[in-house]
Computed example of a mutant assay.
Amino acid sequence: MKKEIYITDYNCVTPLGFNVDANWKALVEGKSGVDLHQIIDNQDAFYASMIHSEDLEKEFSTIQNDSHTFTRLEKMFILSIKPLIERHSITEHTAFILSTTKGNISLLKNKTELPEDVYLSKLAGKIAGLFGFKTKPIVVSNACVSGVMAIAVAKNMIQAGKYHDAFVIAGDELSEFVISGFNSFQAIGSGPCKPYDKNRNGINIGEAAAAVYITSAPAENEKFRFKILGDSAINDANHISGPSRTGDGLYDSIRNAMTEAGVSAAQIDFISAHGTATLYNDEMEAIAFNRMELQHVPLNSMKGYYGHCLGASGLLESIISMESALHGIVIPSKNFEEMGVSQPLNIIKENQLASIRYILKTASGFGGCNAAIVLEKTNII
C-alpha cells in the first residue's frame, strides 16, 4: 500500500501580495496584477503581471540585510519559502525541490562569459544552502509544466522512501529573454489576456514565486491537509511550441492521474486549468476535457490575474485552488465573456460558493509536455 502524501502548508509572492491571505483577498475582490509595463528599452509598453521592485526590496529588507548578494528572483524565492521553513523542521530526510523555467536568465544580459549563478543547479544550491538543507537539491525545469511536475516529483520520491518530506519552491521572473522569445512566436496579447474567450489573442507574461510543504506524516496541529492522490506527465511529441490538436498528451495525463487517484469525472469538483489565452492551447484543453467527460465541471484559468508565470504557474495555481476549497469559493476566469473554443466548458464567470473535495490541476507547455495532478481536501480530526 502506497504512503499517503499531503500538502499541509504553502505560501506565495506575487504582484497581488507577499502572502497567501493578501492574494486571496485580492482575488475575491477581482483585482488583477496585469497592467501596462515598460520593460524593454525602446519598445512599447505591453500588458504583463510584474512585482514592483520597490515593494519587493522593502519586503525583503524585513527578513534579510545583505540583499545585494541575491538576484531579484532569488529574493522572490526566499520570501516565498521562509515562512514555511519557520514552521517545519529540516532533517537529513527532507528534500528541497526547485521548479523554474528560466531561473536567473537575466544575468546573461550584456555578458560575454557565462555567469555561474545562471546555472539552475547553482541557483538551487544557493537557496538550499541559505536555509541549511542537508540533501542535494533537485531541479525540475520542464517548460510550463514544471510547477505541477515538482509536486509530482515530491510525491513519488516520498512514496519511494527516498525522503520523509519535501519543500517545493517554484518561480520565474519577467526578463527580456522570455519576452523576446514569446514575441518571436507572436504569442503576446495586445491587451489583458482572455482565456477561452472568442476574442483572445495571446498571453500576458507574469512573474511569481510559490512554495509548498509536502509530507507523509502530517502534524496534529496543522490547519489543513490536501492529499496528492494522483499525478501524470505525458509528452504529445507534436511540435516544439504547438500542442496536439486532438489534446492527446493532456488527455492521457488527466486520465492517468485520475486513474491513480481512483476518482471519476463525476467526482471532480473543480478544475484549475492552464488557460494561456492562446488560440491553440485553449482549444486543445477544451478537447481534452471533453474527451475525459469533464466539460460540466466548474473551471477557471488564473492567467487573467497573474499572467503566465512559467515555472511558477502550476504551483501558484495549485495553491489558489486549495484556497478555493478551504474557503468554499471558486474564482471567475477573469476577462472571459464569450465562448471561443469548439467544445463546451463550464467556465466560472463570477465568485460562487462551492463545496470542493476533489481538485484537478492541469498544465501544458512547450516541447509537447502536459501534466495533471488530483488533490483531495481532507478533514482534520
Rank of each mutant, 00 (worst) to 15 (best):
E74V: 04
L36I: 09
M284F: 08
I97N: 13
I105P: 03
K82Q: 09
H93T: 13
V178I: 15
C193G: 12
F366I: 10
I347Y: 00
A219T: 13
L229Y: 05
I359S: 08
I169L: 14
K25H: 10
I331K: 01
N142Y: 11
N290Q: 08
T215G: 08
Y305A: 08
K334H: 01
T62V: 12
I240M: 03
A154L: 02
G132W: 06
T69R: 04
M157F: 15
Y280R: 07
N290P: 00
G147P: 10
N256H: 11
G33N: 10
G304R: 03
L130Y: 11
M149I: 11
L73C: 07
A265K: 08
I347Q: 00
G367L: 06
D35C: 15
S180C: 09
G125C: 08
I97K: 14
N379T: 15
S318P: 12
L27A: 01
P83I: 05
N235Y: 06
V178F: 05
A152F: 04
D236Y: 02
A187G: 10
I254M: 07
D269Y: 00
T362E: 03
N110Q: 02
I151R: 15
A170H: 13
C144K: 08
Y306P: 04
Q295S: 08
A217S: 15
E317F: 01
T378C: 13
T246F: 10
H239Q: 12
L27M: 04
Q267N: 10
K75L: 04
I188C: 11
V374W: 01
I127Y: 02
A95I: 14
D55V: 02
G262R: 11
Q38R: 10
S106M: 04
G129W: 05
S342E: 04
E222C: 15
Y6D: 11
N156D: 13
A265R: 14
K155V: 14
G314Y: 11
S61F: 02
D252K: 10
I81L: 07
S253Y: 01
G262A: 02
A124C: 08
C144M: 10
N370E: 06
L36W: 05
S175F: 14
V13R: 09
Y47S: 10
S80R: 09
H274Y: 02
L279Q: 02
K349V: 07
P243L: 13
A45M: 09
D35R: 15
P218A: 07
V139Y: 04
L108F: 06
F70Q: 03
N42Y: 10
K75C: 15
I63W: 08
N104G: 06
V20T: 06
A277Y: 00
G247P: 07
H93Y: 03
C309P: 14
F18Q: 00
A286S: 03
I214E: 11
E283G: 00
E59K: 08
L123A: 06
V178H: 14
P344A: 03
T112W: 01
S146F: 06
K155W: 05
I179H: 14
A211S: 15
T362D: 03
P137K: 02
H308G: 06
M302G: 07
T378G: 13
D172A: 11
S272E: 04
A22F: 02
E350V: 00
A277D: 03
P243S: 12
F289T: 01
N201G: 12
H68G: 00
